[in-house]
Design a binder for these strands. Structure first.
Length: 349
DNA sequence: AAACCCAACAACCGCTTCTTG
DNA sequence: ACAAGAAGCGGTTGTTGGGTT
């Protein structure tokens, strides 16, 4: 037995909406609201449409203050960084872009943004692969060579540490890849406004990327906007974001976050670098992200030894607090996409 | 001018989650 | 606690219009 249809498909009009239908629906909702029941609405106003279709039409097109097209550079950046950190959670992404609908963003991503990013990235990918393989070969040759480090104790699943992919410093002031500060700031402010409706100051632990020391966000710049994921049990507007229903996060200070732990990844079974070096497929998936990260950072994507690498950019990309907050937020949501899943996704493209 | 291709976007479908009785 | 129905969501498909051959 399949699921019962939401409406009588035989008596329901499908396809594009006519201006008359739009006008009817708009006028009724503006005057009476939806009445809390989309299914019954079309009958009330004499529309031969499915209730779901009415809802979609209203939300994506007729609702006031909807913006169509003309995505700004900043919006591009926000979409990219959020996509990279949380995956295709379009409704959450849309919630950060006033006037944009999830459908609009999804379409924009699928038709333009993804291509823009992947096209840019593809060019660089070949060059990077060559470099990486060269490095790997060199490394493995030195390992296998007589007098090399390989011995009986070396587990065969061990992937040698890649010289060009080291855990980077993540200091914005020193990192030319670091996300444009203004975009970053405004995004954080937006998110802060959206997620928090109390003014309590946050007390979030932050791992210093340089030395791994633990500090509170009280000491950080932009602290006013970092109450995004308040540990204070702040009340949140449940209509604004799914994250509003989240339990408190584990960012409370008191040393809860250790130096080697990535924020928001506490629940993750292994540490990022372990995954990264786990196998070559994974690596290539992550490789694919380089281009995107670089695009987001407004650089040409060149990655050479000693430069900031993906992890540095991941951090900068989405601003440690934002990403970690979202990661944690999403751990409590269904259909979670972690950054690692996203990287796998790109690896398959 | 016709055929074809492709990008963009609107709308649909079906699954999941939430709400209510 | 449970079931049913409604709403939300994301993937996919269909349509349209512009560009190219």
């Amino acid at each position: 037995m399949g699921r019962a249809p939401c409406c009588d498909k035989a008596n329901v009009k499908r396809g594009p909406w006519s201006p008359e239908e739009d006008a009817k629906l708009k006028a009724y909702i503006e005057q009476n609201g939806t009445g809390g029941n989309w299914i019954a609405l079309p009958q009330k106003i004499g529309l031969k449409r499915c209730g779901k279709s009415c809802r979609l039409r209203w939300l994506n097109y007729l609702r006031p203050n909807i913006k169509h097209g003309g995505f700004s550079e900043e919006e591009d950046n926000i979409i990219c960084s959020l996509y990279i950190s949380i995956g295709s959670r379009w409704s959450i992404i849309a919630a950060q872009l006033p006037g944009r609908t999830d459908n609009d963003i999804k379409n924009y991503w699928n038709t333009r943004l993804k291509k823009k990013l992947l096209g840019k990235q593809r060019k660089e990918q070949a060059a990077r692969r060559a470099t990486l393989r060269q490095e790997i070969n060199r490394e493995s040759q030195s390992v296998m060579a007589p007098g090399g480090v390989l011995n009986q104790q070396t587990p065969n699943y061990y992937w040698p540490e890649l010289p060009s992919v080291n855990m980077p410093a993540m200091n914005p002031s020193q990192d030319s890849h670091f996300w444009d500060q203004e975009s970053l700031r405004s995004l954080l402010i937006k998110l802060g406004e959206r997620f928090s409706d109390d003014q309590q100051e946050l007390n979030i632990a932050t791992v210093c990327p340089l030395d791994g020391s633990c500090t509170s966000t009280r000491d950080q710049p932009y602290s006013s906007s970092m109450n995004v994921f308040s540990s204070s049990g702040a009340s949140m507007n449940s209509t604004d974001s799914p994250c509003s229903q989240l339990p408190n996060t584990n960012y409370a200070v008191n040393g809860a976050v250790g130096p080697s732990t990535y924020q928001g990844l506490d629940g993750f079974p292994v540490e990022p670098h372990e995954l990264m070096y786990g196998n070559q497929q994974q690596l290539e998936g992550l490789e694919s992200l380089y281009g995107i990260m670089d695009m987001a950072n407004g650089t040409n994507g060149a990655l050479s030894s000693g430069e900031s690498t993906i992890w540095g950019n991941v951090s900068s990309l989405a601003y440690p607090q934002l990403v970690s907050g979202l990661e944690t937020c999403l751990q409590s949501l269904p259909q979670n996409h972690s950054s690692f899943e996203v990287s796998s996704y790109f690896g398959q493209q």
